[in-house]
Design a binder for these strands. Structure first.
Lengths: 183, 183
DNA sequence: GGTCCCATGTAACAAGTTACATGATTCC
DNA sequence: GGAATCATGTAACTTGTTACATGGGACC
């Protein structure tokens, strides 16, 4: 369900190749959903079988040929159904790969943990910078925005990103202080 | 890897039955990692085959018999290896089931989105209350804490929870205001 | 008599990961 | 000549989800 519908969501903005989708799930969308290249092609097949998307071959002479996917009417109905059908328990389900390590850390070298948290802060800052400068996020996002309405939800997503990463940095900084006190 | 090691992490605190583990992944640990009952029993089999855990049958007359699992020396080595082997890219991988819906929402009824966000705020508040009152979190967490060292990491995890949910509420409140402006 | 807690799973299926495989064009 | 970008996948495997299946004891 998740990736299938995420792909439908992207294709609802714009028709795309598997390659384009792969890039979308590696960059602007990656901060709240990610996927492997192979999984994307697999799901595109599954979506085609369900008649939620169709594809058209485009023959190119300067570049390799490509298969452009677009959402069907049935796909749009399914997307709307999925969007409307939000169950609060599912939305609370959350997995945090950093936190699960922190929770079980006890015999690990404190310096190592500090280094990891420092690295984490750097990565968060990097993402924030990308968002701020608009080098990566903005132009890519704009590709998906055509309708005025969408800008509101796009803004909500962006704001989430800012707040989230700033909060992560605040937490990690606090942790490092605590760990340094310990030494 | 993830659930296997999370189970090892819990068993490293204390020996437990599959049922106890299931409860752990439904309540104190759930806010950063969750699992289904069936998956826990499946992973316990896999861990046994790898010799990372062993089990002992306990026959009870007042309650159903149970199988108590404990971590082996090999399991402890594996856990330490996993804890020490943190790759930053993996730690940045993150999936947010609420945000992916928000991002694709555009034709959905604004009221419906507001209701969903309100529900989300309520859930976040509920979790925060549980953490504050210590009704759910503290006593359960204390079961896992025997060594002084662990308290630091436990504190880091708890603080994360507080900061995270407060931030989520702040964001969702902001979103609701924005959506109301729109109407 | 009903519900909750304790307790353990299996089977089928869906989703996600890792590794492999190929090849053209463009730009430096 | 080499790297980057464009472009599409398959195969094997591991993880995770959903549905089903069972049953005793305690407590109200």
């Amino acid at each position: 369900m998740p990736l299938k519908h995420a792909i439908l969501g992207v294709l609802n903005y714009k028709e795309m190749t598997g390659y384009d989708l792969d890039r979308a799930f590696k960059s602007p969308i990656a901060f709240f959903w990610h996927a492997q290249t192979s999984q994307i092609y697999k799901e595109l097949n599954a979506l085609t079988k369900k008649n939620w998307v169709t594809s058209e071959m485009i023959y190119q002479s300067d570049k390799p040929n490509k298969k452009v996917f677009s959402i069907t009417e049935e796909g749009q109905i399914e997307l709307q159904r999925w969007l409307g059908d939000a169950n609060i328990e599912d939305l609370m389900k959350y997995k945090n790969p950093l936190l699960i390590k922190v929770f079980f850390t006890s015999n690990v070298d404190v310096d190592k943990t500090i280094r990891l948290l420092t690295q984490y802060i750097n990565e968060c800052n990097k993402t924030l910078e990308e968002m701020n400068e608009g080098i990566n996020m903005m132009p890519k996002m704009e590709e998906y925005i055509q309708r005025n309405n969408e800008a509101v939800y796009w803004g909500m997503t962006m704001t989430y990103g800012f707040m989230y990463y700033q909060n992560e940095i605040k937490w990690a900084t606090w942790c490092i202080d605590k760990l340094k006190e310990k030494i």
